[in-house]
Nucleic acid binder design. Structure first.
Lengths: 132, 132
DNA sequence: GCGTTTTTGACAATCATTATCGTTGCCACG
DNA sequence: CGTGGCAACGATAATGATTGTCAAAAACGC
């Protein structure tokens, strides 16, 4: 503890998870990602996948979504803050940005005296393909 | 089967859950509600509480929230569509309405051709009391 | 290279929710 | 008023994702 370094080490497993997310489109569950890494021959423990995903999520490098289905879905996505429009049939996802919503949320929270504000917003619908 | 009635029967348990929700403020988990019913002497099974809550949620009579913590929280709340501003420390909740957000979500979804649109929005912050 | 410290990973534990399935009670009709 | 059908109930077991544990392995700084 005499050290003050960041203490984030660069490991093979972390790179593998990060790389995989870089190639993937759409959302995947932790267990999905774990299975994919296995298929690739990467030897990574499920626990580590969870930990790595949490770390990345904390660092803001990936996005987490909690669909009604229950399991958490992770995805590497563009930097800024944004939300998702998800097809409830096929799962196709569109990233949407809503500056108006952001400011509205902050304003409302401030009106009630709430500080350190964050929010989650997800839009569900049926995409054009699945409607037909 | 010759009948076409709605087949929603009026049971003691359903009334109990509904009544309890009517008296409660704030959000409570299914298990909380179950425990409270027990304390009152109402004999209701946990399974039934879950089923009833789901039914009420489907009917739009109560609101469901899925905080990052994991468990679902239920609350009887005002009729119209609205969202919640929740203190992440003490859990105090404020109902907020955002017509602008509603229309924005619908508009964005429509732009991408999505139909049958719904959305979830929750705002988290630290309430004035907990800030100090 | 060496020691320290983080990280890993197999497994068990947790915990809310859901399924099962025999029993109970509501409701309608005779 | 009695009865039969059918939905609801409820105790328990099952599910399944996530988190905790802890010894062993690996990475980083020197």
């Amino acid at each position: 503890m005499t050290e003050s370094s960041a203490a984030v080490r660069n490991t093979r497993q972390r790179s593998a998870v990060s790389a995989l997310l870089g190639e993937m489109e759409g959302f995947h569950s932790a267990q999905d990602l774990h299975a994919m890494l296995r298929q690739r021959g990467e030897r990574v423990g499920l626990t580590t996948v969870y930990r790595t995903l949490q770390g990345l999520a904390d660092a803001g490098e990936i996005d987490v979504m909690r669909p009604p289905g229950g399991e958490h879905l992770y995805r590497r996505c563009s930097e800024g803050h944004h939300h998702h429009l998800v097809c409830r049939v096929c799962g196709r996802t569109v990233e949407v940005a809503g500056p108006a919503v952001e400011s509205w949320a902050d304003r409302v929270a401030a009106q009630h005296g709430y500080a350190d504000v964050s929010h989650t917003l997800e839009i569900f619908g049926t995409c054009p393909t699945c409607v037909r």
